[in-house]
């Protein structure tokens, strides 16, 4: 019975549940969401690949043609890659709704654009702000 006062007070208050798909809790700045690459800054130095604990980053190909392959299903969102990047080409975005049924959709490829024509990656590549 010692909880009766609070129970009554609670009835008048708004429930604390967030009605998730309809409303969303705010994501604070510097949240470690899905990392995003800004390939115009990247110098393909492979540091992020070496720093990544679960091996979620792979550099594919050689020279300026190389692509960065990011395996979101392996990523543990630790921010090591963003920390180590000498050009600050990686930003942890605020994207966190990443669950899915198809692992092949969780592979993202980033490549340096050759001229002006940006080639949009197939599966809605994340932007810096998510």
């Amino acid at each position: 019975m010692s909880i009766v006062g609070e129970a009554l007070r609670q009835l008048r208050r708004k429930p604390c549940t967030v009605r998730y798909p309809a409303e969303k809790a705010p994501v604070p700045p510097r949240f470690r969401g899905m990392p995003a690459w800004d390939m115009s800054k990247c110098i393909l130095c492979v540091l992020c690949q070496n720093a990544c604990p679960p091996g979620a980053i792979r550099l594919i190909g050689k020279g300026p043609e190389a692509e960065i392959e990011y395996l979101m299903d392996r990523c543990i969102f630790c921010e090591e890659c963003a920390e180590v990047c000498p050009k600050r080409a990686i930003v942890m975005s605020d994207r966190f709704e990443l669950a899915g049924f198809d692992r092949s959709k969780m592979v993202f490829r980033f490549r340096k654009e050759k001229e002006k024509q940006p080639e949009p990656p197939k599966h809605s590549a994340p932007t810096a702000n998510g």
Binding site: Q10, L11, P15, C16, T17
Partner: peptide, 13 residues
């Protein structure tokens, strides 16, 4: 509904 509201939840919605 009432049980949920006492606990600070919405209950069926």
């Amino acid at each position: 509904k009432l049980f949920a509201r006492v606990q600070g939840r919405y209950g069926p919605l």
